[in-house]
Amino acid sequence: MNGPLLEVSDLKVVYKTYEGTVAAVNGLDFSLHRGKTLGLVGESGAGKTTTALSILGLVPSPPGVIESGRIVFDGRDLLSLPEREMKKIRGNRISMIFQDPMTSLNPVVTVGVQISEALVAHQNLSEAAAEKRAMEMLEKVQIPGARFKEYPHEFSGGMRQRVVIAMALACNPALIIADEPTTALDVTIQAQVLELMRSLKDEFSTAMIMITHDLGVVGEVCDHIAVMYAGRIVETGTLEQLFRSAKHPYTTGLFRCIPDIEEETSLIQPIEGLMPEPLDLPKGCAFHPRCPRCMDVCRTTLPPASEENGHRVLCHLYAGGGAHA
């Protein structure tokens, strides 16, 4: 098949709370090809994690409701699959790496058993065969196979995250969703884990969605980037397109927030204001109250998407030569 591995269109997810309905994901469109890595970037509350949970069918319900959209994975719409079918996909064809390796591992089960669990459940392996494969997986993430019988607390933070990576890769999935996989790690350990993820991704030719708030991490591992703000992708394109010629004022603002470690002097220019209240999103473009280039039209009308060579941006500045009445 030549089509994309994953195609998400018009995804809308809301959380129904006592105080009102929160639109966490508000009409999302993106696709991912086999073996490629997409960086999903944004700040807290942008809707990154909700997007990931929707793909895995794990949006907590209640309060979460997927209002509309399609998530086509390998030719099938995941949103229309019964739970029985989703179970065959989750952990097998699509797996997830969570932020905190300590809470995503079971503290009372050895790491070996945790890795083989998925193999027994999905691949019809005998326990002995699964055990053997689990040891191989540990070696793949540079942990001696002999440590198979140890418990999570016997490993350091970086090693635990590598165990989680081994679990995620065990069934050779077509897609891995990594939610801030290195945020809880120290920089030197983060560098080790990123390097490992990069080489394993190539070896297993797995596609990946990397959720992160760190543009530096995106630069290390991703081919494509999608920048999210208040439940929408405001800009998406290749790594090169976004790093060389970011268009959306939010994206350019994000770059200017980070002190440059390679230059002698670094000026940082914060984005003024705060993330909008999710219960009360601004009219028009959700970014307009913080936007230094805000125009009248931005306050009233949702900007249309404009696209050039796959570089798509949701901003009135680029909508057919400026403001339209």
């Binding site: 560098a191 990123l194 630069g219 790594l239 390679e262």
Partner: peptide, 25 residues
């Protein structure tokens, strides 16, 4: 040096060479 080299930089052409430490603290 290792600490500096480990910082991921949001740039396409980074000046620093890769230098990844082995093991943990």
């Amino acid at each position: 040096q290792a600490l500096l080299a480990a910082v991921p930089i949001p740039k396409l052409d980074r000046k620093r060479e890769k230098f990844i430490l082995t093991g943990g603290v």
